[in-house]
């Protein structure tokens, strides 16, 4: 062609003509759905406390229930629809983490229990675990050094 843009000009032009995500709408949806998921978590937490369980058991039980809900909705083919609507609102809570582990497990079942489910289950959640655990170790070292 005769008139060819530079790659830089082309990138700027593409940015101009490509539609952007609807940030305001998506943020509002994330706020409402994320808040609602946390309310469900709070409801279970309050209920367990009322049953007379101590703080540690209450926290663990609440997490277990929320993970169960996240995995169940994933298995029922519903969590992806929720995620499409809510975006970060359903990714950030612990139910989203459960979805990130359960969804590759379902997807890769066709490659078998070891190399499929076993090896691929942490495809998406893996980096979160690696860097989450690494950061907590670093934070722990700082805390130790500050205390002594």
């Amino acid at each position: 062609m005769q008139h060819i843009m530079t790659k830089n000009d082309y990138r700027k032009y593409v940015d101009k003509v490509s539609p952007n995500s609807k940030t305001v709408r998506n943020t509002l949806r994330a706020f409402v759905v994320g808040g609602f998921i946390c309310m469900i978590g709070q409801f279970f937490m309050n209920s367990f406390k009322q049953m007379g369980l101590d703080q540690e058991v209450t926290s663990s039980l609440t997490s277990i229930v929320m993970i169960f809900l996240g995995v169940s909705l994933t298995a029922l083919n519903l969590y992806d629809d929720l995620g499409k609507f809510a975006g970060a609102g359903s990714i950030v809570p612990i139910t989203g983490f459960a979805n990130a582990v359960a969804s590759p497990a379902i997807e890769y079942k066709s490659e078998g229990y070891v190399l499929g489910i076993g090896a691929r289950m942490f495809l998406i959640a893996g980096p979160v675990l690696v860097y989450g655990i690494s950061m907590s170790i670093i934070a722990g070292i700082f805390r130790y050094l500050l205390k002594h």
Binding site: S21, N26, K84, A102, S103, I106, I124
Partner: peptide
Amino acid sequence: EKQFRFPLELGSQRHPT
């Protein structure tokens, strides 16, 4: 989707483009 992007059941949003 499985090869190029994410598992189908992962709750994520697609970009308008």
